[in-house]
Amino acid sequence: MGTLSAGSEGANRDSACLHAFGNIAEHWDLTVPEQCKLLGVDQAGVLHDWMVQAQAGDDVSLPEDVMEGIGCVLSIYASLVILLNHDRSKGWVRAPNRAPLFGGRSAMSLMASGNRKDLEDVARYLLSERYR
């Protein structure tokens, strides 16, 4: 039996995380530009190539900032499933929100602003709602 190097373990993790992100993106009907903004990826072709590799079961090694974006999205999704449920999470990300953080805008408009802090703020907001 072969041994895995630390690099391949990380690439396996990155592929699994990217695959999970792809499932959430599909469930939330994210556009490619929204996906790129959430992950901080400048070129849609790069994201597409990573997704194709991950879906094929190939190892993908992602930059740390992309993994951080995926982590935020996974946290947001997990919080929404706990607070609402899987099906209602889709509507929540697109609906106008009266909470002060959102100022009447949808969570998606804030999450996909291109500013990582906004994405992190949504994740923190939902975590705080979970523990109210």
Rank of each mutant, 00 (worst) to 15 (best):
residue 42 D to W: 14
residue 70 I to C: 03
residue 61 S to M: 12
residue 42 D to V: 11
residue 58 D to A: 04
residue 49 D to N: 15
residue 66 V to W: 00
residue 46 V to C: 08
residue 64 E to S: 12
residue 64 E to H: 11
residue 53 Q to S: 05
residue 50 W to Y: 14
residue 50 W to M: 09
residue 63 P to I: 06
residue 43 Q to Y: 11
residue 63 P to S: 07
residue 51 M to G: 07
residue 40 G to S: 12
residue 41 V to D: 01
residue 69 G to K: 03
residue 45 G to D: 14
residue 42 D to P: 11
residue 68 E to T: 10
residue 42 D to R: 14
residue 71 G to M: 07
residue 56 A to K: 14
residue 47 L to R: 11
residue 43 Q to M: 09
residue 70 I to G: 01
residue 51 M to W: 12
residue 40 G to D: 04
residue 58 D to V: 04
residue 40 G to W: 00
residue 60 V to D: 01
residue 70 I to S: 04
residue 56 A to C: 06
residue 40 G to Y: 02
residue 47 L to C: 11
residue 54 A to V: 03
residue 43 Q to K: 14
residue 48 H to D: 14
residue 68 E to L: 15
residue 69 G to S: 10
residue 65 D to L: 09
residue 44 A to M: 10
residue 65 D to C: 05
residue 58 D to T: 01
residue 68 E to A: 12
residue 49 D to Q: 15
residue 54 A to K: 04
residue 54 A to R: 03
residue 68 E to N: 08
residue 57 G to Q: 04
residue 39 L to R: 00
residue 42 D to G: 12
residue 58 D to F: 01
residue 71 G to R: 07
residue 53 Q to K: 14
residue 41 V to M: 08
residue 43 Q to P: 04
residue 67 M to Y: 05
residue 65 D to H: 13
residue 53 Q to P: 02
residue 59 D to N: 06
residue 39 L to M: 09
residue 68 E to S: 11
residue 62 L to K: 02
residue 44 A to V: 12
residue 65 D to K: 15
residue 52 V to P: 05
residue 54 A to I: 02
residue 64 E to W: 07
residue 66 V to I: 10
residue 57 G to W: 04
residue 41 V to A: 03
residue 55 Q to T: 07
residue 56 A to F: 06
residue 68 E to I: 06
residue 56 A to L: 13
residue 47 L to H: 09
residue 42 D to T: 10
residue 40 G to V: 02
residue 47 L to W: 11
residue 38 L to C: 08
residue 44 A to N: 10
residue 65 D to M: 08
residue 67 M to D: 11
residue 63 P to Y: 09
residue 45 G to R: 14
residue 62 L to G: 00
residue 49 D to W: 15
residue 55 Q to P: 06
residue 59 D to K: 03
residue 55 Q to H: 07
residue 58 D to I: 01
residue 57 G to Y: 03
residue 38 L to T: 04
residue 51 M to H: 13
residue 58 D to Y: 05
residue 51 M to S: 15
residue 54 A to M: 00
residue 65 D to Q: 10
residue 55 Q to Y: 06
residue 60 V to I: 09
residue 57 G to P: 00
residue 61 S to A: 13
residue 58 D to E: 08
residue 67 M to S: 08
residue 65 D to A: 09
residue 42 D to N: 14
residue 39 L to H: 05
residue 68 E to P: 05
residue 57 G to N: 00
residue 38 L to S: 01
residue 66 V to R: 02
residue 53 Q to C: 05
residue 66 V to H: 01
residue 48 H to R: 15
residue 40 G to A: 08
residue 39 L to E: 02
residue 50 W to D: 00
residue 46 V to F: 09
residue 48 H to E: 15
residue 67 M to P: 02
residue 59 D to H: 03
residue 64 E to A: 08
residue 49 D to F: 10
residue 48 H to W: 15
residue 54 A to L: 05
residue 52 V to I: 14
residue 62 L to N: 01
residue 48 H to N: 15
residue 52 V to H: 05
residue 70 I to Q: 03
residue 56 A to S: 13
residue 67 M to C: 12
residue 65 D to W: 10
residue 41 V to G: 02
residue 53 Q to R: 10
residue 46 V to Y: 13
residue 57 G to D: 00
residue 60 V to N: 01
residue 39 L to W: 01
residue 62 L to A: 02
residue 42 D to H: 15
residue 71 G to A: 07
residue 66 V to E: 02
residue 69 G to T: 11
residue 65 D to S: 06
residue 52 V to G: 06
residue 64 E to P: 05
residue 54 A to Y: 04
